[in-house]
């Protein structure tokens, strides 16, 4: 397959996933904001801080001054073309990549991307009003799930499929690490925590649609270490870091096998990350420090993305 084609497929996967992740993060933040009184820091925009950290945009926080306006932040995450990770930018980029490789996509896949883009375009840069925002975010999330289903259901299991999947999984792994990192302080609290902490922990789980999953796995009160364990080390949760990295390694393996075993540094590094998670223990992570661990994982993800690009996408 042409590297340029693989590149477009990979970024199609990444950007669709990113659109969904941004929507999820906003949904949770809105919910928290709506809970009001329990969280004193909110009115001043402090409640939005983790959200910005998640989208990697600390510079923006400074640009907005000491107390960024909630509406400004939401606009930045939903409709800001200058922000590569805003929902609008992600959908634009997905569609552009899909168009580049139109013939490599199935009709269902193309339609899910193109319809999403078309509906987004009809909004003409206008922000949904506050009451419509939750519905809009739900729609974005549903569209990304539809896209994931469309390609999982209809694509031939060939190289094209593997590169889309690789993009989805690396983006998802990275997002999980970033969200956890943004909440590292809340997750490092020892002891039972306050009612507010509890709300916070619930919010973290909710952004991964993992609140129920937590109950099924642990059958008990929410504890920060278990949250970390679930989202980092438990393979049965599809958005956990280990689940994503298992698939990344698997995809890279399959691609290598299809090319007669041709491997590069990206294969070694993907295996290394996966091994680290497979044999890791949550106690050790906390001994080392959760934030330190997550920082390292984020750096490794960026590095892995670069290695994949070097070996397959722009060689």
């Amino acid at each position: 397959m042409l590297s340029r084609t693989a590149d477009s497929l990979y970024w199609l996967g990444r950007y669709m996933e990113r659109a969904g992740n941004t929507a999820r993060a906003l949904q949770v933040a809105l919910r928290e904001a709506g809970m009001g009184g329990g969280r004193p820091a909110q009115g001043q925009g402090q409640g939005w801080r983790p959200l910005l950290l998640t989208s990697g945009d600390i510079g923006l926080l400074q640009g907005f001054g000491a107390a960024p306006d909630a509406a400004q932040i939401i606009q930045h995450l939903v409709m800001d073309r200058a922000n590569n990770s805003s929902i609008q930018s992600c959908i634009e980029a997905s569609r552009q990549n899909a168009r580049q490789v139109r013939t490599a996509l199935t009709v269902d896949m193309w339609e899910s991307v193109n319809d999403t883009w078309g509906q987004m375009r009809r909004m003409e840069n206008a922000m949904p009003n506050a009451d419509d925002l939750p519905g809009f975010l739900d729609w974005v999330k549903r569209q990304t799930i539809l896209f994931n289903g469309a390609y999982d259901d209809t694509m031939l299991r060939d190289e094209a499929w593997r590169f889309v999947r690789l993009g989805t999984m690396l983006e998802r792994a990275d997002n999980t690490a970033r969200v956890l990192h943004a909440h590292a302080a809340a997750l490092s609290i020892m002891g039972p925590g306050t009612a507010e902490d509890y709300l916070n922990w619930q919010a973290i789980l909710r952004s991964f649609t993992a609140l129920r999953a937590y109950q099924w796995v642990y059958h008990g009160r929410i504890e920060p270490r278990r949250i970390a364990e679930l989202l980092i080390l438990r393979g049965e949760l599809p958005r956990s870091m280990i689940a994503c990295h298992a698939r990344i390694e698997g995809m890279l393996d399959e691609i290598a096998t299809a090319h007669g075993g041709r491997r590069g540094e990206c294969h070694r590094r993907a295996g290394e990350i996966h091994a680290r998670l497979r044999f890791g223990r949550v106690e050790d992570i906390f001994t080392e420090g959760l934030e330190v661990f997550l920082n390292e994982m984020m750096a490794r993800n960026i590095d892995l993305g670069g290695q994949i690009a070097d070996f397959y996408l722009n060689n």
């Binding site: 397959m1 042409l2 590297s3 693989a6 013939t103 190289e159 691609i255 090319h259 722009n314 060689n315």
Partner: peptide
């Protein structure tokens, strides 16, 4: 598509030692 060959743009090709290569995921 009908011939079963790749559609390439200039950026997909390069020349080394007077031989033309296309950049693919298989190298």
């Amino acid at each position: 598509d009908e011939m079963g060959v790749e559609v390439v743009e200039g950026q997909d090709l390069f020349v080394e030692d007077r031989v033309v290569y296309m950049r693919t995921t298989a190298g």
